[in-house]
Design a protein around this nucleic acid. Sequence first.
DNA 1: GCCAACGTTGGC
DNA 2: GCCAACGTTGGC
Length: 152
Amino acid sequence: MNYWLFKTEPDECSIDDFANAPDTPIVWEGVRNYQARNFLRDDVAVGDEVFIYHSSCKDIGIAGIARVVRAAYPDPSQFNPCSIYFDPKSSPDNPRWVAVDLVYASKLVQLIRLDKLKSLANLTELPLVRKGNRLSVMPVTCAQWQTILALC
DNA sequence: GCCAACGTTGGC
DNA sequence: GCCAACGTTGGC
């Protein structure tokens, strides 16, 4: 089993959206970066656990945990002309982008702020805290996962 | 809203 | 395959 961190803008999809529908899988669509796509497509597996990270908002940081319930499949939004994620260069017989499904696992008692994460020597290798990082789907090592959980 | 950093595109 | 120009991300 692997651990991950997925970024999301809470205006778009927040941990509360998961918590409000704890039995409903949420389609993690709209990843449009090749490195992130490759992680989703090749390495994210059913049963993996995911930190849900809130970006571009007032309270930036890790807000909760979700679990993967469906591995990669073609991201439906890439074929939908009405979607902001529509990609005219992708085709159903050769899809460029993938989605996975997540369900709610837990909400952290309090959000772990980005500056807190940046302050920890154990996390300096986490892509999230590295300068200029823009990866929206990133692996978290077991040690990093434990370090972060211990902050709760 | 600014802007640094990074990713992508496309001409050559 | 290089690289300038452009677009996007995301913290501040």
